[in-house]
Design a protein around this nucleic acid. Structure first.
Lengths: 142, 142
DNA sequence: TCTTAAATATGATTTTTATCATATTTTTTA
DNA sequence: TAAAAAATATGATAAAAATCATATTTAAGA
């Protein structure tokens, strides 16, 4: 369901949400702790900046950070930018003609859970997720 | 979450469950209707035969089919054989150290739905899924 | 205004996944 | 028992995803 790239991007954004408090942090200082190759992460961050899910400034003392607006985005926004809309909406077997009216055998079995997952990814903001970590209700290991 | 290979394998098994009623059907006659390259599917079927999720006989009049035992397996068995156990159990962000005690921010949000999906994949048999199609409650398009 | 440190842009390489091709084995049937 | 039709086994190729490398642009500070 999620590509490696999306996972990396999500980890990076969560890391920023937790560790940069409006401070700019450079790729290296994100990629190292979250265990993602630096150059690769740098590349992933570009579309996120372009789509305004992440903020950045160039030059010395530059780096990445999240502003208030960024913090109010949801995880699904990240996935949309990195993996694209189709992957999110495609049926579990990738059957084009599978839909509510003509569901494939897995469809009914999974619709509810699937919708739940998508709803959660859609509605919880990055800020909320970071808050959970700060409160000790969640963790960001590795 | 699911590789293309797993999707193909599931489609093939469901196709067999619905269309071969103990009749042997050759790869070509599976691959064509389910829209999967023949040689690729042939290759995918081998591990399924080896793990006794699918039955086969060689030679003229040979082909693939599902016996009673095969029909009582579940979709998750197919995924296990093709994609492997790890993919199924790994956390959404693939954090090794993410678990019930130290959940990542996505974990809590998704555990319930996730467990539901896995339970369903585990408990519904191929036979049941095929039955749903025969009864017109589900469809297998493409 | 020059140097330096950072992001950004672009392209090359590697690895993985998907696909194609071909040779071998098994079974049927003539 | 020979020929043909099927699965099976193995390896080669192609495409996609992940990773690495390098050059360019921007901003800070001396």
């Amino acid at each position: 369901m999620l590509s490696n790239s999306s996972k990396y991007a999500i980890k990076a954004v969560l890391f920023l949400a937790i560790h940069s408090n409006n401070k700019r942090v450079m790729v290296k200082d994100i990629s190292d702790p979250i265990n993602v190759p630096q150059a690769y992460l740098a590349k992933l961050l570009q579309p996120l900046v372009k789509e305004e899910l992440v903020s950045s400034v160039r030059g010395p003392k530059g780096g990445f950070y999240l502003n208030e607006e960024n913090l109010n985005h949801s995880v699904i926004d990240i996935i949309r930018v990195i993996d694209g809309e189709e992957k999110l909406n495609s049926c579990m077997l990738s059957l084009e003609k599978c839909n509510e009216e003509k569901p494939c055998p897995l469809h009914n079995m999974l619709v509810v859970s699937r919708k739940n997952i998508l709803n959660n990814l859609e509605n919880r903001t990055i800020k909320e997720l970071a808050l959970a970590v700060e409160k000790g209700n969640a963790f960001l290991p590795l």
